[in-house]
């Protein structure tokens, strides 16, 4: 089962190293990981997606909590979170295919960032499933490059972690 763990950490050098080190050492698998500073410049938020059982996630949480620079750890409830990932995708495009690509972009809500005689660069921010769908739809046109950020997420409603 996929689970989303949100971790607030000290915004310092070496912290990310400790976190990823902990995951590999304890044989926890990271599906995706995204880091960015929060509104407080001394604090970063790391969003980690793991694919594992409940017991495992509880151990991950506890082990993360033991790291001195980790301020807070919370596993977000799947039904109650807003999770988004950003993808930039470069695809082959010519006069014949460009319109078809545009149609898919419109349906999916993707944006065109760049265009050249032989390619288009597209941008989509959505839930990861939707990015997968978009990527699958682009595949027949021959994808040149894909970059995805990994999911960032917060809990719905007025609460905060």
């Amino acid at each position: 089962m996929k689970q989303t763990i949100s971790v607030l950490v000290e915004n310092q050098a070496g912290v990310l190293n400790r976190i990823t080190g902990l995951f590999s050492r304890r044989a926890f698998n990271i599906e995706s990981l995204a880091v960015g500073v929060t509104d407080d410049p001394t604090v970063s938020r790391i969003t980690i997606i793991v694919d594992s059982g409940n017991n495992m996630v509880e151990q991950v949480e506890k082990q993360l909590n033991k790291l001195i620079e980790v301020i807070k750890v919370r596993t977000l409830e799947e039904t109650n979170l807003i999770g988004r990932e950003l993808m930039i995708l470069k695809v082959n495009a010519n006069n014949k295919t460009r319109q078809d690509i545009m149609t898919i972009c419109e349906i999916m809500g993707a944006k065109v960032d760049d265009i050249s005689p032989t390619s288009m660069t597209l941008e989509l921010s959505a839930e990861p499933d939707r990015l997968d769908t978009f990527q699958a739809m682009m595949r027949p046109f021959s994808i040149l490059e894909v970059a995805r950020t990994g999911v960032i997420a917060v809990q719905k409603g007025g609460g905060k972690i």
Partner: peptide, 8 residues
């Protein structure tokens, strides 16, 4: 004293 030991 270590919560991570409980249930590990």
């Amino acid at each position: 004293v270590d919560p991570a030991e409980i249930g590990k």
